[in-house]
Design a protein around this nucleic acid. Sequence first.
RNA 1: GCGUCCGUAGCUCAGCUGGUAGAGCACUCGGCUUUUAACCGAUUGGUCGUGCGUUCGAGUCGCACCGGACGCACCA
Length: 494
Amino acid sequence: MTSEQDDSRLRQERLRKLEMIRELNINPYPYSFTRSHKAQELHEKYKDLPADTETEDVVRVCGRVLNERNTWMFVDLYDDSGKIQLFCHKQNIPEEELKRLRLLDKGDFLGAEGTVRRTKQGELSVKVTSYEILGKTLQPLPDSWDGFTDVEARYRHRYVDMIMNPNVRDTFRKRSIAIRTIREFLDSRGCLEVETPVLQVEAGGADARPFITHHNTLDIDLYLRIATELHLKRLIVGGFERVYEIGRIFRNEGISTRHNPEFTMLELYWAYGDYNQLMDLAEEMIVETAIKVAGASKVTYQGVEIDFKRPFRRLRMVDAIKETTGLDCSTLKTFEDAKTAAVKLGGVDLTHCDTRGHVLNAIFEHKAESSLIQPTFLIDYPVEMSPLTKPHRTNPGEVERFELFAYGRELANGYSELTDPLDQRQRLEEQAAKKAAGNEEAMPLDLDFINAMEYGMPPTMGIGIGIDRLVMLLTDSASIRDVVAFPTMKPIVK
RNA sequence: GCGUCCGUAGCUCAGCUGGUAGAGCACUCGGCUUUUAACCGAUUGGUCGUGCGUUCGAGUCGCACCGGACGCACCA
């Protein structure tokens, strides 16, 4: 096991110092501190101050001590805007107070007052005349020489990760910017942000295994939602023409660098539009988000340049298959034809395929998906794997669905929503039959959803975007855990 | 669930075909210093992931287990 950051020797030492601070009648955990400037503000205000120059300007700064040199003569103080150096010298501070600095440790919070100067070395500093401790640390921070690199420890103690690794804080700021951009984009287009139930009697709207929980007084099992789709569409039925939810989704599946059991999805439903208009809208939103987060529509992800430049390529699934395998799907009339062709290609896992459409999708996933590096809308899916999607207006057996891929990964899924209640009932009954036959990922029959649709639903376009995966791409994060502040971890068994 | 790799001091790691458990950093003490110290000196710190086995002798070899990383599978 890795360190729990509780080495008793180092902690005891800090407890000893804490005791000494208290014996001096100093509160090591005071109530407030009035600051005049953040570090960044000082750097901006005094950017033209020459080296080895003093000012008379008195400032008050506060933050966390992360480094100290020359026996506390130079202290690196960090706030959430950056670093400012403190210069602590007996010339300016009473000697006994100067000595008390040694009761501090790296990691402690400190407030200081003094004048602004730039040192001979060119480092902007606060020449400290008085200081106060604002929070004593008991746990030692990781070695700043080696950094905090243990992958497991970083995720388990994310707060330490954030203290030690500025890029981690930066990633979460960017995540916030991404979500805010999307909100503003949608709000400015008349979309209404709504909230729908997390706890559901049946978990529908996607193919995934749900988490199960229990309500005590009702004495019933409930599922955590695997999608927000079915409730958002009820809102469309209810008369809201543009609704969206940025919500946590829970799926009881494997954990990997691209999957966290809980993740954040944007789902948007917009009446009177179809999947063609939706692709235009999605492009615009994603490009705007990329520019706000990464500064440009072009980003580098894991060494590969990804250009979110409009328009994104639009590629029919059957054409993607043809491009990479040479296979003409129109010659595959039946499930058996498709299976035979897939076996002939080799390397296609058909374990969960029970229809022609699923086989085509498997061929795509195994042969073509990883080659979709630049943003590409894969369009026109087989009807069998899309029970909530409107049939294609011209191509039999297909539906008006797209998925957006970038770096070979799925980012979004959208379609012209199925609005025919009779067709919907039939498709969900087929799903329910599969579920009854043991397919854990098939959708349950949500009769109330069908009932809602029987009350009438306008033509609607709808999309789901994996926010975590989008943020991964825009922040060059290799793992979904890098963009989730507190990723799911196996508990430590003692 | 399967495969590959990994587990030695608080951290980063060394430790050869089996033979006295090490280094740097951190911590503590001391020194030096009115502009950079990631300095100098000394001390402290270990059930070598756990268990069993082979052996005169195991950090090292074997087996099992625990934990982790990555990949695959599952999953958009």
